[in-house]
Simulated assay, not measured.
Amino acid sequence: MSVLLQMAMFPTDHGESKSEYVAEVIKVIRESGFPYQLTPMATIIETEKLSDALNIIQKCYDTLDRLDCNRVYAPITFDIRKGHKNRLKGKVKSIENKIGKVSK
């Protein structure tokens, strides 16, 4: 199974710039060992089980909680597909096979 998790998570109660907090969230994602892709608006992570994706979300929230964030915004989207793997790269490759290299 492939679970694609697209998420962004940051506090809304700590000023205008969020990079300091987003960096801490990305450290958690990086340390999870699962493949991920950081984009300007969200991060996409691929796990094999939904429970792993949910665990990453919890750890990210716990990190912000330890940083005294009282209000956290987190849009979260899942794409869960049985019988598939490596969709983080495979979905992009499928489009490139049709139209050529896409900007990255």
Rank of each mutant, 00 (worst) to 15 (best):
K49L: 12
S19M: 11
D68C: 05
H84A: 14
G83F: 11
S32H: 08
S17C: 06
S19N: 12
S94K: 11
N86T: 03
E48D: 15
K93A: 15
S32W: 07
K85V: 05
A42G: 00
K59M: 10
K98V: 07
K49W: 04
H84S: 14
A74N: 13
D65N: 11
D62T: 02
N97G: 14
T39E: 15
K93G: 02
R71F: 07
Y61A: 05
D52T: 00
G83T: 03
Q6W: 01
I56V: 09
S19I: 07
G90V: 03
V25Q: 06
I99P: 01
N70D: 14
K91F: 00
I76Y: 10
C60F: 06
I80V: 15
V72C: 07
L50T: 05
L4H: 06
R66V: 03
K91L: 15
P75V: 00
K104S: 10
T63D: 06
E16S: 11
I29E: 07
T47F: 06
K91I: 09
N86K: 13
A8P: 01
K85M: 09
K18F: 09
D65Q: 11
Y61T: 03
K98I: 10
H14S: 08
T47N: 06
L38M: 14
T43A: 12
P40C: 12
I95L: 15
I29T: 02
A53V: 01
N86F: 07
T43M: 10
D79Y: 03
E24Y: 03
K101I: 02
P35Q: 15
R66H: 08
Y36V: 00
K93H: 04
G33R: 10
K93V: 01
L67W: 05
S17T: 04
L67N: 05
R30Y: 12
M7K: 02
A23Q: 11
G15N: 09
M7I: 09
S94V: 00
V28W: 07
G100D: 11
G100V: 02
K89L: 09
T39H: 15
K18N: 09
K91Q: 13
N70R: 13
D13H: 07
T77D: 13
K93E: 13
F10T: 02
V28R: 04
L5K: 03
V92L: 13
E24T: 02
G15R: 09
L54M: 14
H14P: 00
G83I: 03
L50I: 04
S103R: 10
L67C: 05
I76R: 07
T39V: 00
N97M: 09
K89F: 02
F34I: 00
T12G: 14
E96M: 05
P11D: 11
A74E: 09
Q37N: 11
M1F: 05
D68T: 02
A42S: 14
A8K: 08
H14Y: 10
I56P: 01
I80D: 11
I26H: 15
F34Y: 15
I29P: 01
Q58E: 15
S19K: 12
G90E: 13
L50M: 14
V28Q: 07
L5Q: 04
V3K: 02
V92E: 08
K91E: 12
A53M: 06
L38C: 08
M7L: 15
R71P: 01
A23I: 00
K18G: 00
Y61W: 07
A74I: 00
